[in-house]
Design a protein around this nucleic acid. Sequence first.
DNA 1: AGGATGATATCC
DNA 2: GATATCATCCTC
Length: 181
Amino acid sequence: MKKLSREFYDRDTVIVAKELLGKYLIHEDRIGKIVEVEAYVGTHDLASHSAKGLTKRTQIMFGSAGYAYVYMIYGLYYCMNIVTEGEGQASAVLIRAIEPIKNIHDRTQGPGLVCKAMHINKSLNGHDLCSDYFYLADAQQSEEFIILEKPRIGVPYAGEWANKLLRFYIQGNAFVSRKEK
DNA sequence: AGGATGATATCC
DNA sequence: GATATCATCCTC
């Protein structure tokens, strides 16, 4: 499998989000196929953490593309994002669901469960995804699927941004976290 | 419909 | 230092 390059991530966030579908997420011996993502497109996106500006928490998002942004949510779960576009753009793609491929024995339908199943925690915040043991890779053979575009989940506070179609998933895939909406 | 549970930001 | 707010998930 071919590791995704810095150039892959350093492009428009919506394009990166869509192209991440079907790619492999690899952490040590665990492999999952990405089937659902959300795009957070910058400081003007009110649903994005980076809308609050540069803080200690969001500094990874303000950095260069191709790094992992991992944070704890609701005191229970971690969520994993991939920073996209150039330094200062503060945009990222949230991994919402994966399909288990190898060495994954827990549920993976939702961002919190993805991190639990993949053993992703805050120690991986800021990890360079172009390095070893925790990275993304292209599938061996390309696969045909239809991408659906829906509003993002859990961001009703974001005003008009809550309605934008920035959630993408593979139509018909059994591991997508929520089918309706 | 509501509870678990903690990091963060934003006040005083 | 207190509090309100979460890019969630599970049980009832």
